[in-house]
Design a protein around this nucleic acid. Sequence first.
DNA 1: GTCTATACTTCGATAGAC
DNA 2: GTCTATCGAAGTATAGAC
Lengths: 195, 195
Amino acid sequence: MDPMTNARRIAGPQAKNRAVLLDAAERLLLTEGYAAVTSRRVAAEAGLKPQLVHYYFATMDDLYLAVFRRRAEEGLARQAAALASDEPLRALWDFSLDDAGTALTSEFVALANHRKEIRSEIARYAERFRAMQVAALAGILESAGVDTTAFPPGAVSVFLTSLSRVVIMERTLGLTAGHDDAVTVAERFIERLDR
Amino acid sequence: MDPMTNARRIAGPQAKNRAVLLDAAERLLLTEGYAAVTSRRVAAEAGLKPQLVHYYFATMDDLYLAVFRRRAEEGLARQAAALASDEPLRALWDFSLDDAGTALTSEFVALANHRKEIRSEIARYAERFRAMQVAALAGILESAGVDTTAFPPGAVSVFLTSLSRVVIMERTLGLTAGHDDAVTVAERFIERLDR
DNA sequence: GTCTATACTTCGATAGAC
DNA sequence: GTCTATCGAAGTATAGAC
């Protein structure tokens, strides 16, 4: 169509190996961190040749972005389902606390530090997650009779998000001091609001 | 002394260039992330030859650990000073929120994901930070008349730590939704307790 | 449309000169 | 004790064979 695009070669769209590579990259990202997600390592993990990575993904950043988007979309759907359930806060909390996606997110945030394109993509999705939470919390807090001047939905969203994220991060590190106490306080709050 | 140590060469102890390399590594870590902290990049930033990095630090992990320890020790001292001040919570909060060290910590946590030795070192220091906070909070909460069954010191410590950390992380990303509300709530709490 | 051969760059680390 | 010359492995990415 466009003779100006100097697309030197073509990338497969929905081909089988594309998903195989995404899975392999995600596995590496979780087990060894983003620095281990190199074309060679991903290919080895997928049982393919290194050059194939560049056939399906022009650059390594494209691969990172594809892995991120796949999980982010899934996460948005799961959060929407949680917020639509009987006990929305409880479901949101469980989702935030045990989701392996949080570990992935940490890796991407670290990656984002020096990759502009990845940073803006993460920011875009993070905003959608937050906005969805705030909208739901506005209703939940109001119908629970909470004084939203003292506890605005945005504040509650940030509290819950940060607590679950840091608890998971520290747990990975092997640090758990204070976690049980903090989680207990948060869950007491959640149970009160869900009723 | 020990003929069994096959120390192939000697590392300088307090030499001038050692500090120069530490400064360069820290600068790179902050501006470009840990993946940019390579022997060659650090050397270039320090105005030295790449091989010198390996003269002063046997491995790159040794360099990372030295950078970390230097800042961690400084952080412990600053936290101790904050907790000894007139308004200990306020000082601790300001320290947590604006400390550029938090950005460094994020890099190290990401690094720790796939470096066992670094992970345990971070965990060791994180435990000391937390323990110091919890000890101080126990006194502060009690003398403020807070029901520490409902709000144990460990929980408060985890709350404050996670809120400040995530706010800073998200800010870096360019995401600020809900931050002002959350910080306002936290600061109201802090002011009440410091009196 | 799929994959391979290969170029070029940068990496951590070592051996050994001064 | 300090620094340099250099190695072998691994990195991303491209050109082109099938």
